[in-house]
Simulated scan of single mutants.
Amino acid sequence: MMTLSVEGVMELAPVIPVLVVDRVEDALPIARALVKGGLPALEVTLRTPAALDVIREMAQVEGAVVGAGTVLNPAQLDAAMAAGARFIVSPGLTEPLGKAAIAAGIPFLPGTATAGDIMRGLDMGLSHFKFFPAETSGGLPALKALAAPLQEARFCPTGGITAESAPQWLAEPFVKCVGGSWVVPKGPVDAARIEALAREAAALPR
């Protein structure tokens, strides 16, 4: 299995679906539909009891690069990696989690919302960050202001981004991709609908 860098994960597609999956039996149809639609990087958030089993299931889908989101500490990092996660996303950046992810050698996308967050990450040797929660942290104007003095940083804005607003974010050179939950609508799994939304997302210019 090919090992990807965090930049490599972010370059797989313009959108990383942010997935909250309650039922293990939904894992395979969701993953297959997203990959078929052109979105191979899948962030499964650790917000449900089923999340680790969902990661195990989705990791079996050919072409899927499955990561774990909402990772809060080194124990969750270890559990996610044991379940087959190939990248890690967190809502914030702490020293214990950052050091553990770097030591593990796994692509790590920590959440940041302030200059101090980003500077701490840069000091740790990280250069790619989640901007979260994107819209309620000031939206694109805020990220532009942060990116100007912190020019080596690259971002995946997540939180409140929609199919309509994604193109504005992706037009910025410091934005490598966006995270979004709109590609998997709430409710019963409709694989055809998910695939169609994934195709639209995969076609977004950047």
Rank of each mutant, 00 (worst) to 15 (best):
Q60Y: 00
V89E: 13
E95H: 15
G84K: 02
L97A: 14
L72V: 07
G92V: 00
G38S: 08
V71H: 01
L93V: 10
K36C: 14
A51H: 04
K36S: 15
G63T: 01
A64C: 14
A83M: 01
V71R: 01
M81N: 02
L42T: 14
K99Y: 11
L39F: 12
P74F: 03
P49C: 08
N73I: 12
M81E: 01
A31S: 15
K36M: 12
V65R: 06
G38F: 02
K99R: 15
V35R: 10
L39Q: 14
V65L: 09
R86D: 05
L52A: 06
P74Q: 01
L72K: 07
P40I: 00
A64M: 12
F87I: 04
A85E: 06
I55N: 00
G84M: 00
R47Y: 13
P96D: 02
G98T: 05
E62Y: 08
T45Q: 00
L93F: 03
A59M: 09
A80F: 08
A75F: 05
A31W: 10
L77E: 12
L93P: 13
T45L: 06
A100P: 02
Q60W: 00
V65Y: 05
A82G: 11
L46T: 11
P49N: 11
E95A: 13
G98V: 08
E43T: 12
V71I: 03
L77A: 08
A50N: 10
L39R: 14
R56A: 11
S90D: 14
T70F: 05
E43L: 07
K36I: 15
N73G: 15
L52P: 13
M81W: 03
L72A: 09
L39S: 13
P74W: 01
A100V: 02
L39A: 12
T94E: 07
V61M: 14
P49Y: 14
A100G: 11
A41W: 06
R56S: 09
L72C: 08
A51Y: 02
